[in-house]
Structures are given as C-alpha cells and as structure tokens.
Design a protein around this nucleic acid. Structure first.
Lengths: 121, 121
DNA sequence: CAGTCATTCCACCTAATGGTTGACTGATAT
DNA sequence: ATATCAGTCAACCATTAGGTGGAATGACTG
C-alpha cells in the first residue's frame, strides 16, 4: 500500500511563529534574560543589547505575537514576562515527526513479515 | 547578588539555522514527507507542492544547510534523506532555558530561607 | 545525434526582517 | 508648567527570503 498524498496539510501557523521567533539570537537572549532575572521592563531588557530601544521593543513584540512573552502594562511601565508554554508545541511537532518515522519502519517490518510468510507457502 | 550582565553571549548560529529552517511550513512538510516515505528524489518531493521545482530545490538547500537533510547524489538523481539529529539542539536549548529558570527560583528560595532565619533572631 | 530527464545556477520580483532616527502619548518629578 | 522618562508608532533603508522563469550541465533514450 502506497500513500502518495498523505502529508497532513495542517500549516500550523502558530508553530511557525514560535519557531521563527526563537530563531533570532537577540530574541533568544531576551528569553534567557527573562528566565534568569524574572520579569522585566522593556528598557531594562534593552540595556543588555547593543542596539536601539526601538529595535528591542520590536523584538519583544515578535515574541509577544508568538506567545513566548506576555506584557503586563503597569501605567507607564510595561512589564515583560516569560511564557515557556508555546515551546511545548515544538516538542509536540518533534514527537509527531518521530512517530511518523517510527510508523514507516513498522510498515516496512510488516511487509517483510508478509514476504517471509509467503516464502513458507 | 545581582548579575546584571550575565547573558551567555553564545550566538549559536547553528541553533538559529535549525530553528529558522524548521519555521517554514513547506520545509516542515518536506521533513514530514521524508519521515513518512523515507528518502526521496527532489522531483518526487516537489510533486507534493503547488510550487515550482526550483522553489522546492531551494527549500531543500536550506534544510541541508541546517543539517536536517542530507544529499546522496547518485549520478543525475539526488536522493534526499532525513536527519533528525539537529532537532536535538532545539531540545537542548529548551532544557537550558528551563534550567536557568529553575536556578532563579532556587535562588529566590534561598533568599526566602535566609530571611526567615533572620526572623528567628 | 537529437531529445528528454533531473537538477542546479542565475537573474529577477516582491514581501518581510532587522535595524535606524524622529515624532508622539502619557505619567512623573521639579 | 516644563522637563523627563517609558514606551510605541511611523517612515525609511539595506538585506534576506520565498517565489518565478529560463538557461546550463550532464547522463540516458531513441
């Protein structure tokens, strides 16, 4: 049995966003900072980088869209908090890929078993 | 004790590449196809997508640069094979982030314990 | 030898990314 | 009231990314 068109066509745009957000070194550094020091203000985070506040603000927005970070606006200060939950999706995708791989190997084994059974005829 | 500049400044460009390569739905679909059907030719892979062979060829090159796929050139045919190993790096990064997080919580606990000890004085 | 097949390379287009600066909003401090 | 601080928004610029089509390479088919 050959499944020529069996790709699960679920785009999963959320997963794409998380992966893309995580693919930038600056953004990963921001996540690390938050893990290290806990929640922090935008300006405080920006101090660690050799780039404008604006650039960091943008990066934070990307992380926010991906759900990796949440914003708690306390009057004029925006407190940024780490949220690792979406990273779980990466794990899930990874696991799925592995299971698909395993399934194929199983199928191959089945074919092999059938063939040896036929040999017995 | 406050570590203001403690971000581990290892860019890890390899991790960035893997994450970015994985962040595209078409490329993830290619990986899924390879997991499902085993190694395959470029053209065979391209058949599953509604885009030019050239585009798919490019995507494969990106995956190749990230090490997620290897190419075995058999004369005129290029056989593309899945290599899940680099995905492990994502796991590692994830684990590191979690441990950094855990470390901070531990530190907080220590401070708390010291304070309650002082209360006893 | 002419034609096709598998694939890449090249030139091109468009949209998105990562960065900049400068102006803006709203809260706080003097 | 004015200056300052936190942060975003908007416009801009250079680079990269994802896609296209067409030509080039190199082996196989008739």
């Amino acid at each position: 049995m050959l499944f020529t068109h069996m790709v699960e066509r679920k785009d999963d745009p959320q997963l794409s966003e998380v992966l893309k957000a995580a693919s930038d070194p600056t953004r990963r550094a921001i996540l690390t900072l938050l893990a290290q020091n806990g929640a922090g203000r935008v300006t405080a985070l920006a101090k660690h980088f050799d780039m404008s506040l604006n650039a960091v603000s943008k990066h934070i927005k990307v992380l926010e869209r991906a759900g990796l970070v949440t914003r708690r606006t306390e009057w004029r200060e925006h407190i940024i908090e780490l949220n690792m939950a979406p990273l779980r999706q990466i794990d899930l995708w990874f696991a799925e890929l592995r299971s698909i791989w395993a399934l194929r190997l199983e199928a191959l084994e089945d074919i092999f078993n059938e063939e040896t059974a036929n040999d017995d005829d």
